[in-house]
Design a protein around this nucleic acid. Structure first.
Length: 259
DNA sequence: ATGGTTGCTTAGCAA
């Protein structure tokens, strides 16, 4: 069986960037593509267009905000739609599917806006719920890959200008502690397995000319259980996808998992 | 310099 390639990409509106999505799939053709920030409901997702390229989509959308999906050319079974643990939470930020013997999870962690805000409290509570759910998912040594937009730059190497971002919701101590607790579950940062840094960066703010100044951060990640991590032979960031007409502010991040 | 840009939805929010 050939190697498995899995990509995560915050596309920042799948309707605004359908052509970019299809073009990227045609050129790169990963086995699995996890998307975040669809900004649409399920019925608005370009299902027919991705099916024409041989993919099937598991979509968890909502109006206007958030929204996550998993696209794959391989057989799959849905494993979760929404993050369990709070029935009052309507934000579409997690979807999971079993593909090629791995439970693949697409996550869109809340941004948090400002440290002194309700949104940051929600971010920390969401991460605590995620930790609890992932703990349950790891039971029985299940192979697990959790990828997405984490809105966390885990350490100093993960910002090109770390002093500028110190104390922000992307770099604050509490989210970095939450990240360390996830590593403590036995999950491994697959990009860091292959790149020491600084970088590779995955997001540049539209504002203040973030990309031309290379004011980048590494906030899109793949976390894998030990057995999957041991099989990870490559990890790459598609920086070129930030160029050209109407790019997303995030770029695709791809890992290769050997059979 | 709490600036700047983008998307969804239409003036304001989220990022």
């Amino acid at each position: 069986m050939p190697d498995l390639t899995i990509t995560t990409w915050n596309i920042n509106s799948v309707r605004a960037r359908t052509e970019r999505l299809l073009s990227w799939l045609e050129r790169h053709g990963p086995d699995v593509l996890c998307l975040q920030e669809l900004k649409c409901v399920d019925a608005q997702f370009p299902t027919a267009e991705v099916e024409a390229l041989g993919y099937r989509a598991l979509v968890h959308g909502q109006p206007t905000y958030n929204g996550v999906a998993i696209l794959t050319r391989l057989p799959f079974e849905p494993a979760a739609v929404g993050l369990p643990g709070d029935d009052t939470d309507v934000q579409a930020r997690l979807v999971a599917a079993d593909v090629a013997g791995i439970r693949v999870v697409s996550v869109y962690v809340p941004n948090g806006k400002e440290v002194a805000s309700d949104k940051y409290a929600y971010k920390l509570a969401w991460l605590a719920r995620l930790e609890a759910w992932l703990t349950s998912q790891l039971a029985g040594d299940r192979p697990l890959l959790v990828c997405g937009d984490w809105n966390i730059a885990p350490d100093e190497r993960d910002a090109n200008f770390p002093d500028q971002w110190a104390g922000s919701v992307l770099c604050h101590e509490a989210v970095r502690d939450a990240w360390q607790r996830l590593l403590g579950l036995g999950l491994e940062d697959l990009v860091r397995r292959h790149h020491d840094g600084p970088g590779p960066f995955t997001w540049w703010d539209y504002r203040a000319l973030g990309f031309p100044r290379n004011d980048g951060l590494r906030i899109d990640h793949h976390l894998a259980s030990a057995g999957v991590a041991a099989r990870c032979t490559a990890a790459s960031v598609d920086r070129d996808e930030r160029k050209g007409e109407k790019p997303s502010d995030h770029v695709p991040v791809t890992v290769t998992i050997a059979s």
